[in-house]
């Protein structure tokens, strides 16, 4: 269970290791607030879709019935959940809704949600599926919040956590006699930041692989 929950953060992080869901990760990460909003909406959708889909698949008879049209069924369920999230957000968080815009509806075609449904939820028990959804949603959220944090600090000189809970770093910038680099808030900046993070993660992984290899080799030599 613990492994199941932790895998979404590092080992199977949807954005950093599988490069799924790049489109919202590049588009909504201009402020930390947007990224948090996206994380909440995304986690809600992926947890509930995993739950429903595993509930459907628990009964062998239904599973057989929907087998030819299962992708359509999954998409209907996911689309419904996304629309629910969209309505709720428009009603109760209008400012977040206007800044996230079309990317809420695009969660429907986000490959992570459908991917988890097909690869995990359809074969596992409801409880495990919920944990898997939580892990994926929060892992993805961690990734986009990381990108958003770097982009907002470098590009706008502030950290917006929620609404007016905003930390301005402009005094620090002024003290250093520099200015925020608006490049990072623009879309090429998003590509650069994502690329650099991926590069660092790849470098760390390579190092680990190299270490393991060396260990194995030295063991062989001992033998």
């Amino acid at each position: 269970m613990k492994d199941n929950f932790l895998k979404g953060f590092f080992k199977e992080n949807p954005l950093f290791t599988m490069l799924l869901g790049c489109c919202p990760a590049l588009a909504v990460t201009t402020t930390v607030e947007n990224a948090i909003g996206m994380t909440l909406a995304f986690t809600f959708v992926v947890v509930l879709s995993n739950l429903f889909i595993s509930l459907i698949n628990i009964n062998e008879k239904i599973k057989e019935l929907i087998q030819p049209v299962r992708i359509a069924v999954y998409i209907v369920i996911i689309a419904t959940l996304v629309t629910v999230v969209e309505m709720l957000m428009e009603a109760y968080f209008p400012s977040l809704y206007s800044s996230l815009g079309v990317f809420i509806s695009l969660i429907t075609v986000n490959c992570i949600v459908l991917g988890r449904a097909e690869a995990y939820a359809s074969k596992n028990k409801p409880l495990n599926s919920i944990v898997d959804g939580l892990s994926m949603g929060l892992g993805y959220g961690m990734a986009i919040i990381m990108i958003a944090f770097l982009r907002e600090v470098l590009g706008a000189g502030s950290i917006t956590i929620w609404g007016s809970a905003k930390l301005s770093l402009i005094p620090v910038f002024n003290f250093l006699r520099i200015e925020p680099i608006s490049f990072f808030v623009s879309s090429p900046g998003a590509f650069l930041v994502l690329g650099l993070i991926l590069g660092v993660i790849q470098a760390i992984n390579n190092k680990k692989v190299l270490k393991n290899k060396n260990k194995r080799q030295s063991k062989k030599e001992v033998k």
């Binding site: 019935l65 929907i66 049209v69 069924v73 209907v76």
Partner: peptide, 17 residues
Amino acid sequence: ITASVLSIFALICAALL
């Protein structure tokens, strides 16, 4: 049967919405 299964799902979802 497949079509009716799909439409049942669609109906449930529509009701929820």
